[in-house]
């Protein structure tokens, strides 16, 4: 220790050089004046890829400021959890109102009145639940009632973990409610019977799509309309048909600015403009092109609207449901209706 050892000094110099090299390669290329982070759910990847480019161009033209939007995707509930735990999201664009409410409740990072800050309950686009079946529809599935016929296997994710799966469940419930005229015992029997036809209960919507499309399990996939179109486009229109039932549910994926984060980062102006632009002509057209139903359809070309069949859509605020605040604990909470009617068979 008394004398400096030349070999040790050399070792240390080498180590430092290696570290410096590592750090130098890691510094991200300088992108832009402002960076926004959009924390979103799984099926919106393609939508926001297109929209982010459009918004960046629009913002540059309007203000001269370059803005880069970073994306994070995952299950809606998990993404909400990340925001609560501290991911520096400027905006959240999630699958369910309940997930944004969870951020409000658990962390206070979003003001409780977020739903009134943007038009249409802060949902710039909507979607619904449809059926994806094998080409030619060999089992002849036309409506919800066909799903519980003998020999039909249904693929849907677990409503306990997946936002999309909750919409599937509620759509089935809405059908049964109409078919059995409010008779709760019969509705429960139908929905419970439906889940007896589910061989694999994946944790997320993309997982279910892969189970159905890639692994070839099941006769019908209950899917977001946009997921069904996308699967058909990406995996081959010659393999699957989309069947739109006469009645389904109106899914309203909401968006919100994460107030605490934008105020800390000084990005409120850009974040608000980012969400507002979703309601513009260009934003609505991009949504429609990515198979989401625009909430301002008059802004969108008729050709892009033609792919969305007109069906009877029940909203979550319908008296049979009474809004997410009521549905979430009643149906999906511990010991809720789903727990009562779903008994794994094996």
């Amino acid at each position: 220790m008394a004398r400096t050892n030349p070999s040790m000094a050399r070792h240390i110099r080498r180590l430092l050089a290696a570290l410096a090299l590592g750090l130098a390669t890691a510094i991200p290329p300088a992108f832009a004046d402002v960076t926004l982070l959009n924390v979103s759910y799984d099926p919106t990847r393609e939508l926001y890829k297109a929209y982010n480019e459009a918004f960046a161009a629009h913002w540059k033209a309007e203000t001269g400021e370059a803005v880069t939007i970073q994306q994070s995707h995952g299950g809606s509930g998990k993404q909400a959890r990340s925001v609560i735990d501290g991911i520096e999201a400027d905006v959240v664009t999630l699958a369910l109102q309940a997930d944004i409410d969870a951020i409000v409740k658990e962390s206070g990072k979003i003001a409780p009145d977020w739903r009134s800050k943007l038009p249409h309950n802060a949902s710039p686009y909507t979607s619904t639940i449809v059926f994806l079946v094998r080409k030619g529809n060999p089992k002849g599935i036309k409506d919800w009632g066909d799903l519980v016929k003998d020999g039909v296997e249904v693929i849907t994710p677990n409503p306990k973990t997946s936002g999309g799966a909750r919409w599937n469940y509620l759509a089935a419930w809405a059908y049964a409610n109409k078919a059995f005229g409010n008779d709760e015992a019969k509705i429960k029997e139908f929905v419970g019977n439906l889940y007896k036809h589910v061989p694999v209960l994946d944790t997320g919507a993309r997982g279910s799509t892969t189970t159905f499309a890639q692994r070839g399990i099941g006769d019908v996939l209950l899917a977001w309309e946009n997921e069904a179109f996308l699967a058909q486009e990406e995996l081959g229109a010659d393999k699957f048909d989309i069947v739109v039932p006469p009645l389904s549910i109106l899914a309203e994926p909401p968006v919100a600015v994460v107030d605490a984060n934008v105020d800390a980062k000084g990005t409120r102006k850009q974040a608000e403009a980012y969400l507002k632009y979703l309601y513009s002509k260009e934003g609505q057209q991009i949504a429609a092109k990515n198979f989401y139903r625009p909430t301002e359809p008059e802004l969108v070309d008729a050709a892009d609207l033609a792919r969305f069949p007109k069906i009877e859509l029940v909203t979550i605020d319908d008296p049979q449901f009474g809004g997410w605040a009521k549905v979430q604990p009643e149906h999906f909470g511990d010991g809720g209706i789903f727990d009562q009617i779903y008994k794994p068979t094996n």
Binding site: L15, A18, L19, L21, G22, L23, T25, A26, P28
Partner: peptide, 15 residues
């Protein structure tokens, strides 16, 4: 970027 990050993480974690 993913490749760069992976190399950076290894360059720090391994030493």
């Amino acid at each position: 970027a993913a490749i760069r990050l992976t190399l950076l993480v290894a360059a720090i974690a391994v030493p």
